[in-house]
């Protein structure tokens, strides 16, 4: 069984390769997330309480405490959940209030990353549907071509965000001084993923980002892009600063959009 990722049979990566990688990435991600939920769940469930003697961290306790806070009445800034979801989480107005440039950078990274992730998921589900024999009004190959332009658009949006982030860290003194090696590693990770995605696609199609490379290099290039995307953008989240992708929306919701 092959996974559709090229123009011809010779350029296809095996389905097994991708499935194994995905499974590994998801297992690593889930293990880390359960670890984080349990760590958070070592906390108490309400104001001024103490954990019971010998009590272990519990993901369920965290989720219950979080939900209780989300639904509790606020004495101050009680905004409706829908407003918080749209304006504070998707539109990220708390960042916009503080800095227009940082908001533009972050929204580019956020929109680019999330959209590409969603488009990849969509493509994967169409291919899976085709593989198990369910007839769709279009083939996976056609669907891939439909996604080509949105993939490019969101890829460039992500690239713009990453480039701004790199430039800020290099040339804005207060950002540079506050940066640690860890920030650079994470930023380099996103940068390499973005660029490798463009290059893998460029080699396959022979367009802008091919750099004259032979189309036979397309499968390993795509495999490289897939590996680091899965490992860095999924598996690494619970173990790194990327955890804010999950924790920040949860914090904003729990605190009713913040003060």
């Amino acid at each position: 069984m092959v996974y559709f990722s090229g123009l011809s049979d010779a350029l296809r990566m095996t389905f097994v390769q991708i499935m194994i990688l995905s499974a590994i990435a998801i297992v690593i991600f889930l293990y880390g997330m359960i670890g984080n939920l349990q760590k958070w769940g070592t906390g108490v469930t309400g104001y001024a309480l103490e954990p019971k003697e010998g009590q272990k961290g519990s993901a369920i306790r965290f989720l219950k405490t979080w939900w209780a806070q989300v639904t509790a009445e606020s004495h101050h800034s009680g905004k409706p959940i829908l407003e918080i979801l749209i304006l504070d989480i998707l539109f990220q107005r708390r960042i916009l209030k503080r800095s227009g440039l940082r908001w533009f950078m972050h929204i580019c990274i956020f929109a680019g990353w999330m959209s590409l992730f969603a488009l990849s998921g969509l493509m994967f589900s169409v291919e899976m549907t085709e593989m198990i024999g369910i007839k769709l009004p279009f083939t996976a190959a056609v669907f891939r071509e439909w996604l080509a332009i949105p993939n490019y658009i969101f890829g460039y949006i992500l690239l713009i965000g990453v480039i701004i982030a790199v430039i800020r860290r290099l040339f804005v003194s207060e950002v540079r001084q506050a940066s640690i090696m860890y920030d650079w590693i994470l930023l380099a990770g996103v940068f390499i993923i973005t660029i490798s995605g463009f290059i893998a696609d460029g080699i396959r199609t022979g367009f802008i980002w091919s750099f004259g490379l032979d189309p036979s290099a397309a499968p390993p290039a795509a495999l490289f892009h897939s590996i680091i995307s899965l490992l860095f953008c999924i598996a690494y989240i619970p173990y790194s600063k990327y955890i804010h992708v999950i924790a920040t929306p949860l914090a904003i919701l729990a605190n009713k959009g913040g003060e």
């Binding site: 906390g43 104001y47 309480l49 965290f62 804010h244 920040t248 949860l250 914090a251 729990a254």
Partner: peptide
Amino acid sequence: TKNLTAVQLMELDSCTRC
């Protein structure tokens, strides 16, 4: 973790060091 709620422990991980 006395006095620290589960949500507060999660908040520590939500800091982006901005």
